[in-house]
Amino acid sequence: MPLPPDSLLRLSRAEAQAHTRYGRAATFGPLHAAYAGPGLPLNTAWHDGTRAPDAAELAAFEHFCAGFGVAPTLQLLSGAAAGALEGLEARGYHLSGLLHTYLHDLTGLPAPAEEVEETADPAAWAELSAQGFGEGSGPTMRVVAAAPGTRLFVARRRGQPAGSAALSLSGGVAALFGMSTRPEWRGQGVQTALLRARLHAAAQAGADFASVFVTPDAPSERNIRRAGFGLAGARLTFTRPAPP
């Protein structure tokens, strides 16, 4: 089954809506902002894919960020970048990050892996996830694990927890995120198992399609392609330096 023609717009709306789960939230026109805690990469705004934010909305978002002492940072998909770029550049924003955006329909899925289970223990999941992501990631993963609507998955190898991943559903769009593998289990199919399990969970939950973001040319990108995802665009991050 082909992906819906408005997939990227729906993904933008879903991400914007889901992002506000992560803490103190506010909306400024098409920007949906959240502050999750000191020093966390979740302290951003998501653009909902509609019109470009105007100067007043950007100023209000910047004031929101200043109240928490963080640099204004926003995420938007590549399809919306052209319309927003002029206004962002005028206020001093610069491109600070890029992830590839992949989508997958939810038909004809391969059998799910047997060694993946869903867990209701966010503390244990966050601890396992941080082992895969590395030093300093624990606070972020604890916020992710505790967010309403997040489903948590653990992959095992030889009975031991080897990797973790998360899933959320908004507006018929399944977001696959938070995938990490403990160093000693890398290269042994853990990520593939977690992708398959979450695709099946998304289909069973009634999602129309699934999405995932990945660092370009990372090993995870190869796994995502092998799992049947197709490249659909990019997630762009723009940042405006905080005033001294």
Rank of each mutant, 00 (worst) to 15 (best):
S12F: 03
Q17T: 14
G39K: 03
F64G: 04
A66Q: 15
S7Y: 04
A59H: 01
E62Y: 03
T73P: 00
A60V: 05
L8A: 07
T20I: 09
H19K: 08
A18R: 02
H19R: 04
W46Y: 14
A60E: 13
L9G: 14
L42I: 10
Y35D: 06
G37L: 13
L11H: 10
P72L: 00
T27L: 01
L58Y: 01
G49Y: 02
T20R: 07
Y22I: 06
A34F: 03
F61V: 02
G49K: 00
R13D: 07
G39E: 12
T44Q: 12
Y22P: 02
G39M: 08
A26P: 00
L8I: 09
P30D: 11
L11C: 13
G23E: 13
T50L: 08
R21Y: 09
A34N: 02
A34H: 05
L42H: 05
R51A: 15
A59M: 03
A33C: 06
D6L: 07
P30M: 03
L9C: 06
G67S: 06
R51G: 15
D48V: 04
A26R: 02
L74R: 01
A33M: 03
R10P: 00
S12I: 06
T50M: 03
F64C: 08
A34M: 03
N43K: 04
H47I: 10
E62M: 06
L74K: 01
A26D: 08
P53M: 09
L42T: 07
A45V: 04
S7F: 05
G29F: 00
P38D: 15
G23L: 10
R24W: 07
S12K: 00
L9V: 13
